[in-house]
């Protein structure tokens, strides 16, 4: 198992390096966008003097490289900086440091919790559902059920998320007002109310991720059905469902786990559109607003969260895949 620990260590180091590259790419991308925060926030009232004043107060008169390293230095000491929108009002209204400054980290934390709640709700439905559908589709391969499950999930993955979202709103909120079309989530809601308001976005995400996981489960199992140990199990008189669940599934876990991890990462990072549609106060919406304003510290922080989610979930998938392999769990 020391090999596993070494693998985790290496991957974490590599992940940190990846995050660094990601931050550079994001910074460069924001620099490349036309306009900057000062112009964006001032809109119609962007007089050259006001723009220059804001730029100066944000330190944007320095070179891009300088600003990047200043930000990076902050990150290494645990400071993700302060959102530009917080700072700008200070300089505009000439206030002193008396007012509480809310850091990016403080802003992000509740949003992140909301996003994780949404992702977890979707995952709690999507993962068991797609595993069950995949197993059943493999069991009844070529049957009407198999085809219906394939067509159904493929249809839902082929439509853009916002389209699925609006269809759901049409049927479940507008035509039959069962669920709210806008997910107003705040800290005082109890769990069930919160869950109730999360149903539609969660359902949208479920429909989007199920196809991939279900099809991988089905294919991973079917690929194994030609193995000799499966034939052996059938020749022992083992019923078909048991052949699949007990003999095929444990050996098919590694590819399935990897696809599940990819999709869970998508649930965290891919929520942007869905959160916007349902006005769900998660990290995705915050991200969209920050990009509109060219609010560099916030964009960076959001991107790093997304990238870290990808890296950690994939690492988790690899660790689990290793653990499902009896050769590695029980060496000779």
């Amino acid at each position: 198992m020391s090999g596993l620990a070494r693998m985790v260590g290496q991957r974490l180091a590599l992940g940190a390096f990846t995050l660094l590259i990601v931050s550079m790419v994001i910074f460069a991308a924001i620099e490349a966008l036309p306009g900057d925060f000062a112009e964006a926030i001032l809109g119609q009232g962007a007089t050259p003097e006001a723009v220059a004043a804001i730029r100066e107060s944000l330190g944007m008169d320095r070179s891009a490289v300088e600003r990047y390293f200043a930000w990076l230095g902050g990150v290494f000491s645990g400071d993700f900086g302060v959102s530009f929108s917080q700072l700008s009002f200070q300089s505009q209204y000439g206030q002193t440091g008396e007012r509480d400054i809310v850091t990016v980290a403080d802003q992000l934390a509740p949003r992140f919790a909301n996003t994780i709640f949404l992702a977890a709700t979707a995952a709690a439905v999507a993962v068991p559902l797609s595993l069950a559908l995949g197993i059943l589709a493999a069991l009844y391969r070529g049957s009407i059920f198999d085809r219906a499950a394939n067509v159904g999930t493929l249809t839902s993955i082929s439509s853009p998320e916002f389209f699925v979202a609006y269809i759901l709103i049409l049927f479940l909120a507008a035509a039959n007002p069962i669920f709210p079309s806008i997910s107003k989530i705040h800290a005082d809601l109890d769990f069930w109310e919160r869950l109730y308001r999360t149903v539609l976005p969660a359902l949208t995400l479920t429909l989007v991720v199920t196809a991939h996981m279900m099809r991988m489960t089905r294919v991973a199992i079917i690929n194994l059905m030609a193995s000799q140990y499966i034939e052996m199990a059938r020749l022992k008189g083992v019923p078909r469902w048991r052949v699949i669940v007990r003999h095929a599934l444990p050996n098919a876990l590694a590819p399935i786990i990897n696809v599940i991890a990819l999709n869970l990462a998508y649930l965290v990072t891919g929520v942007v559109v869905v959160e916007v549609v349902f006005v769900y106060p998660g990290i995705g919406q915050m991200f969209v607003d920050a990009v509109k304003l060219r609010d560099m510290p916030t964009v960076q922080a959001c991107c790093l969260v997304f990238a870290a989610a990808y890296i950690l979930l994939n690492l988790l998938a690899d660790v689990l895949s290793v653990l499902t392999n009896p050769r590695l769990r029980h060496p000779k």
């Binding site: 140990y229 444990p250 050769r327």
Partner: peptide, 11 residues
């Protein structure tokens, strides 16, 4: 079967 190594379920 011919190949016991392939016919025992590795899991």
């Amino acid at each position: 079967a011919q190949s016991a190594a392939a016919s025992f379920n590795p899991a």
